[in-house]
C-alpha cells in the first residue's frame, strides 16, 4: 500500500475508503471530510518532513498527485536540491 493510502487509513480509521479510491480520483469530491483532507496534508508533512505550501496545495488533488509530489521531493532531496 502506498504512503498516502496508509495515511488515509490512519485518518479515517478504516481501509475501506482508501481501498476504493483510484489514484486519479479528486479527493475533495470523494466524500472525505474537508477536515480530514487538512489532516492528511499535515500528516504528510509530519511523516516526511516535507513542507507543503499554498502553491503546492493547488496541485495536490489526487492520491497520484501526492505520490508524485513526494517522489519529486525525495529525488530533489537526494540530489541536494531544495
Amino acid at each position: 500500500m502506498s504512503t498516502i493510502r496508509e495515511l488515509l487509513v490512519e485518518l479515517t480509521g478504516t481501509s475501506e475508503y482508501a481501498d476504493t479510491l483510484g489514484d486519479d480520483v479528486d479527493l475533495a469530491g470523494s466524500g472525505i471530510d474537508s477536515g480530514d483532507l487538512v489532516r492528511l496534508v499535515l500528516l504528510v508533512e509530519q511523516r516526511t518532513g516535507v513542507e507543503i505550501t499554498a502553491a503546492d496545495m493547488e496541485t495536490l488533488r489526487t492520491i497520484g498527485d501526492y505520490e508524485s509530489f513526494l517522489a519529486d521531493r525525495a529525488v530533489a532531496g537526494s540530489s541536494g536540491g531544495a
Binding site: 474537508s34 487538512v38 503546492d56 496545495m57
Partner: peptide
C-alpha cells in the same frame, strides 16, 4: 475557498 492552513497563512 475552503480552509486549509497553508492557504490561510499565505
Amino acid at each position: 475557498p475552503g480552509f486549509t492552513p497553508q492557504k490561510a497563512l499565505a
